[in-house]
Design a binder for these strands. Structure first.
Lengths: 339, 339
DNA sequence: TATATTTGCTTAATCGATTAAGCAAATATA
DNA sequence: TATATTTGCTTAATCGATTAAGCAAATATA
């Protein structure tokens, strides 16, 4: 039968005729236990295939060594790369991660937080769903005294550690690049202004236009959910304008892909007639025709830094109230769509 | 200070001057507790913001209500969709899922299993990494008496429940479709034969050729890791053959995309000169030019069925030894690349 | 009215691992 | 040699929630 009972410390203790307490200490190399006993304990532990019961030790120690991570979705190269690098750092420090996805839904995000708190995680690292406006569930994490670190999709109102790229400057870089190529009417299909990163991208775009003495035209600034469908729809709308743009900066590669499809379907030459720039440097940007210029977000660094920020919070006494806001510089990858 | 102590059953008990046992029962609507007490307990629980300690109850009940999931990677539409649907079913049944990714690495997969067992999951649902040949770590799960369910990437040697599509028949469908279009020399860039699903795809391809009286040419059958780069390299090689194929069936959309790039770069018309078919129906297949025909794997159903299979295993007494092997029929989505 | 059953709780043990406190034997120091 | 310290363990309590067993009061049944 497969379902034999698990080996416990007590079993090892009985086998050696010592107390479970001694076994526990031997397993942790306590200095007050003799080498002879330690060796014997470890031998028997191996023999009986002892696996410590995580629930019991976590309950007793008040520490689960689990970190919860919430991402809007996993099937994006950015988030999956962040996760991968986060995990490396946390594993090395003895933590395991539990990944959950909100699917960009506010309700799901709340449920994820409940699940993670319920699982007794030692901290939560999250990137907010597009839908999220109400922040009370994040306040809940803070009020439990559990470290909360946000990355990419953060919020200023929430006074927590944050790791992300400089969205404002990224927009700047994009506009500068397009202006250099001679563009005069640059449209922006962005995310919703209430989300910090998308707000920053819009602000960067508007300020960069001003600096280059280009007029700001509200019909060229569009807010959306930035899905592929949104990209198609909004590009369609831009093409119907009397005075068409000569460049479109889109705050997501998925939406940029949708826009490109519309341009291709309408036989509009990219980059000759309209230049196109996306955001996120998803792998497909280099695969489509023409390849799409995009912003590289340093997902590896973001993952690593978010993890390290968490570790700092755990190690340091609660006293230190200063916040860690880490803003990385992004990189513009220029491809055929804007050459 | 944020770090105030958590509310426990005992706190509620003290507030009401009853025993913790009564509180526990009241929270679970035990029939032997009066409505008056239940109401009072729930009121105080809300007032003190009581959150049950999952570690304690899991330890006592010997059940964590957590299910571990291992996927080769999350940034594929197939796996992320499987995960999403799996989660819906399991959440409804009171389970939460812990997602881990192996990144196609055998070593990482072993570590993931250790992590999940350590976290005391009630079951594991997994899809194997490409690298995996040695199955002893999966045997470990079985020997603990924890339900193990495999999906998509499974193994016959491992006697466990499985949910996947009919890879053999899918290959058949593809070959039939290509033959119908007049193709006579159909190449296959596949995965490694040692992996069950890729082996089935190769067998289906070979048998279908035979049935259609087409000669089997070993120079047209290629094994690889099926990355985008593999697709590029192997397509390149196929083009260098004296007797070029007039169709290529590739067992992964990513590799198919690489192959398409090479064909485009060499100004070979698709589908006129060479027809192309991928596998997996990743979103980009409909986005590239020309769009790529592919096999739709019913990721939603696979996720749902894998979850339901787990639930059945948990509910049923261990006695029932019959295995659940669920094989779904896939669907060929015909696009421009094979029209 | 006498006994049986039900109701509504309490008591105490338990799930495993950990740890503070303590004790006896061995060793070190004065 | 007498006292102090160290070594190597044990004992008992604890982390919270759950549950079997049991008890007294209330209610039902004969």
């Amino acid at each position: 039968m497969a379902n034999k009972k698990r080996t416990t410390l007590k079993d090892i203790a009985n086998a050696l005729n010592i107390s479970p307490a001694a076994v526990s200490k031997a397993m942790h190399d306590d200095s007050r236990i003799s080498d002879k006993t330690k060796k014997a304990v470890k031998r028997i532990a191996k023999e009986l295939d002892y696996q410590p019961n995580h629930l019991a030790s976590a309950l007793r120690k008040g520490k689960s060594n689990l970190v919860g991570v919430i991402v809007p979705r996993t099937n994006s190269n950015f988030f999956s790369s962040v996760l991968e690098n986060m995990e490396v750092v946390l594993n090395k420090a003895g933590y395991n991660i539990i990944i959950t996805q909100s699917n960009e839904s506010f309700e799901k995000e709340c449920k994820n937080i409940d699940t993670l708190l319920f699982t007794q995680v030692d901290g939560i690292i999250a990137s907010m769903a597009n839908e999220t406006v109400d922040l009370s569930h994040y306040e809940k994490i803070k009020s439990k005294g559990i470290p909360l670190i946000l990355f990419d999709r953060g919020e200023n109102d929430l006074n927590v550690d944050y790791v992300g790229i400089n969205d404002y400057d990224s927009s700047h870089m994009i506009v500068e690049h397009l202006v250099e190529k001679g563009c005069k009417r640059i449209a922006h299909i962005g995310g919703y202004r209430r989300t910090r990163i998308f707000n920053n991208r819009i602000r960067g775009y508007v300020d960069a236009l001003k600096e280059n003495n280009l007029p700001k035209d509200d019909s060229l600034i569009i807010e959306s959910s930035l899905t592929l469908e949104d990209g198609r729809r909004e590009m369609q709308r831009l093409l119907q304008l009397k005075n068409r743009p000569d460049a479109v900066y889109i705050a997501s590669d998925y939406a940029a892909l949708g826009a490109l499809q519309i341009l291709n379907e309408n036989n509009i030459n990219v980059p000759e007639d309209i230049r196109l720039i996306g955001f996120g440097n998803e792998p497909f940007t280099s695969l489509v025709t023409p390849s799409i210029s995009s912003i590289k977000q340093h997902s590896k660094d973001i993952g690593r830094l978010a993890a390290e920020t968490f570790l700092k919070r755990v190690d340091e006494p609660e006293l230190k109230q200063s916040l860690n806001k880490i803003i990385l510089n992004a990189e513009l990858i220029i491809r055929d769509s804007s050459k």
